[in-house]
Design a protein around this nucleic acid. Structure first.
Lengths: 192, 192
DNA sequence: AAACGGTATGTTAGTAATCACTAACTGATC
DNA sequence: GATCAGTTAGTGATTACTAACATACCGTTT
């Protein structure tokens, strides 16, 4: 989790904006430099290559996983951590819409082996975190135990992803936090 | 639903293969012609532009929606149509893995306005079909009525999508039909 | 049966535009 | 005077696509 300079953060922010606008194909050094109001070579003063920029984007997702892990480690295990995940994601994306473009973007980084493997690793990690919460919630009898924890994990992450995707496709046309909260409510009802 | 010539079908098949291998960025006229063992201009004898090829790919998804609509129209409404959707998708993708690359590919076609709008339309249509099944299943008291049909639709499509995505990320490393069937079983149990 | 003409499907060679990136230079700051 | 952060001008590679030409096939005419 190397610290980024102010300029690097600006570049990352612009990269996210470009991806939001037109997908990964829209993220070019030319578009990036134009968006920042500088020349193309200026970008290379701050990142050695485009690949470096993409890896830094993925670092955001890794950091988010790490923070999630720390949060649940510091409190006692409970299904409320899933509710927390839904509300945290809602807050995060509503304050930083661009982030939602890459957070569930396995499709984006297919091009490159190093990138796609990293995406897979991050996504697997997220699944494991959620599943560990589900398993201990089942042990605590917080939720029903007659459904396999893997299936529950799948429903939870699948629903969350689809809400965020729908939100993006609708051009951020509804209150994401509200919708995510309604989704979790329905899921929790079915899990009780 | 214009009929494709044999050569056009080969081109579409190769396009799907290329997208499976390396995402939309990997689908270039050069790679496509190489994959078919012809020169680049030969492609243009069968499609007037690359855009035409992409639109034809989306046509597959539209046709699938149409077939789904026809299936449920020809039989009496029932929640079994959702089970049927899970099993049909499983069969379809296991016999044609390449198709799974684009079936849930909102991210892929972001680049172009015409394409991304078509994707949104197809995806919205699919939601509506599923929701109409859920609503009538609730009216028939086949499933519980204390959960909003929108939320149920979201869970169902979200789960299905995530299973297929996981399957692709795992390099088709498990029996998709089996996994989809297990997912639906869990969902149905929670909906009863 | 042979010749003719059109259509379908391919080729080679090339286009302008764009891609990520680099060399060499400039100016400001400490 | 060294470092940082920018510039202009250019690299070769790749993009989708086109012009012009070649050939195989097919039904019709002689």
């Amino acid at each position: 989790m190397k610290a980024l300079t102010a300029r690097q953060q600006e570049i990352i922010q612009s990269s996210l904006k470009l991806i939001t606008e037109g997908g990964i194909q829209h993220l070019t050094i030319k578009a990036l430099s134009a968006s920042l109001g500088v020349s193309e070579p200026a970008i290379y003063r701050h990142f050695s290559s485009k690949q470096e920029i993409l890896l830094t984007l993925l670092q955001i997702l890794e950091d988010d996983n790490l923070r999630f892990r720390q949060t649940i480690a510091s409190e006692k295990p409970s299904i409320r951590h899933i509710a927390g995940m839904f509300s945290r994601q809602g807050q995060l994306f509503m304050h930083n819409r661009e982030l939602s473009s890459i957070i569930f973007s396995e499709e984006i980084f297919q091009n490159n082996r190093e990138l796609s493997q990293k995406v897979l690793q991050i996504s697997t990690e997220r699944h494991e975190i959620v599943r560990s919460i589900i398993i201990s919630a089942q042990q605590q009898r917080e939720i029903r135990t007659d459904i396999d924890s893997r299936q529950i994990t799948l429903m939870i992450i699948g629903s969350l992803r689809l809400v965020v995707l729908t939100w993006r496709l609708s051009d951020f046309g509804f209150d994401l936090a509200e919708e995510l909260s309604a989704s979790w409510e329905a899921l929790f009802k079915m899990l009780s």
